[in-house]
Design a protein around this nucleic acid. Structure first.
Lengths: 190, 190
DNA sequence: GTCTATACACGGATAGAC
DNA sequence: GTCTATCCGTGTATAGAC
């Protein structure tokens, strides 16, 4: 893929994640990407919405790859969950509570205002749920349990990110991690 | 309190919740509140930020009152949790997936960009956690457990709202409700 | 205290030179 | 395909009439 296009996507991802979709201007993205303003419309003729759609889908996939590489590295489910939440907490602290979920802020902003982008966020979440379900199935859970645990994991992580960023504290993440492990244990006991 | 001020606060709460803080204009708020534009600056001399602060704190308190009135109406913890998540799901469907947490969207938007508003959202979450902890203590849990369960409840609800609004589905809320009940049961068994 | 008009910056988008 | 200049709407904020 073209180099400038990659920089524009990266800048958009970073700025949307931190400042939100409506809170980020295209001029700001061009400047951050060290790209001329017109290049945005060259690579994304649909303007801000098309760029937003591309950012949501690409960063959503990257984030899933990252999380699943962690989970796959730990065959034990309980340990994998613990590591995932701990790493999320570390990463938040390391970025001064800026980098949490790459699409959550956008998802809430556009849910009731921009159908195209809402569908993009929904597609990402749907993909995460399906990947997680398959993953937990390979670790021995039945499909219904695997899906329930995946939803628990994702919703807990997302909610913990909201509180953690607002309060500048890792406590919500650690508490959520404990709860998800409890939920997982209750499935594994049978 | 002055009538126009109340309408401005109500309009701000509704619009911020649905369209976000940066996505809502003061002119739009004045128009929705059927108030002259100048009145906003009359009642909130600090402009948009002062209005945002007031909206966060007042709607945060109202929402807590609502949720706790439900929880208090059900002495059994498990039942209270189930009712809370079911009612959240019903309310979401009734408003076409618009009205979830009144401050979550703002919280994510401002966490890294506006320290005054970030502190306002943090104060609201801190208050919720303290109220929830006291509430579960009166129902027989020790403080540490009560706080852990409260954090689990709030983070699960917040995260489920993100997915539910994006996917236009109540499944994440129902799954999160089940997980929180499991977490609660594991505390009550001892 | 209510309301209108306006200032000024920035938003997204486009045209067109190179 | 790169880059600049510009259009027009909307954003927040303010001044001041009533």
């Amino acid at each position: 893929m073209n180099d400038t296009k990659v920089r524009i996507l990266a800048a958009g991802a970073e700025l949307f994640r931190r400042n939100g979709y409506t809170g980020t201007g295209l001029k700001q993205i061009a400047s951050t990407a060290r790209a001329p303003f017109g290049s945005i419309y060259h690579f994304f003729p649909g303007g801000k919405q098309e760029l937003g759609d591309a950012v949501i889908r690409s960063s959503g996939e990257s984030y899933a790859d990252l999380v699943f590489s962690i989970v796959d590295g730990h065959p034990d489910i309980i340990e994998a969950i613990e590591v995932a939440f701990t790493m999320a907490a570390d990463s938040l602290v390391a970025t001064d509570y800026a980098d949490a979920c790459p699409i959550a802020t956008i998802a809430l902003e556009v849910a009731s205002t921009n159908e195209v982008l809402r569908v993009a966020t929904a597609d990402v979440f749907t993909d995460w749920i399906e990947r997680g379900t398959r993953n937990f199935q390979t670790k021995g859970l039945h499909e219904a349990e695997a899906r329930q645990l995946t939803l628990t994991l994702i919703t807990s992580l997302e909610g913990a990110f909201v509180l953690a960023r607002a309060m500048r504290s890792t406590e919500p993440l650690l508490a959520a991690g404990r709860a998800v492990r409890t939920a997982a244990r209750s499935m594994l006991e049978w």
